[in-house]
């Protein structure tokens, strides 16, 4: 399935992309599978999305944990811990 991914703040600058599309093959894909697929791109993607890096993931504009299931038209966003207020 095709997943649209948005990047914000430092991650947008690091990846030099505000939006990408990625194809996940197979069914029952979770956020953790998407993170793994991004790491497979290698280079900065592998470095920045390591387990010890702190980043947050939102699916359809809600922050989630990486065991959440993904569906075809989902909008996923990756961003650093928030710093508003």
């Amino acid at each position: 399935m095709e997943i649209k991914i948005l990047f914000f703040a430092k991650l947008r600058e690091t990846f030099n992309a505000s939006e990408i599309e990625i194809t996940l093959t197979g069914s029952n894909k979770k956020v953790s599978d998407l993170i793994e697929a991004l790491r497979q791109k290698g280079g900065i993607w592998a470095t920045e999305l390591q387990n010890n890096k702190s980043f947050r993931v939102a699916v359809n504009q809600e922050m989630v944990t990486d065991d959440v299931q993904l569906s075809e038209s989902d909008e996923v966003a990756f961003f650093p811990p928030v710093t508003g207020g």
């Binding site: 914000f8 703040a9 430092k10 939102a58 922050m63 966003a77 961003f79 650093p80 811990p81 928030v82 710093t83 508003g84 207020g85």
Partner: peptide
């Protein structure tokens, strides 16, 4: 708000 709302400085 400081930990949940998607703002970055």
């Amino acid at each position: 708000l400081k930990t949940q709302a998607p703002f970055w400085k």
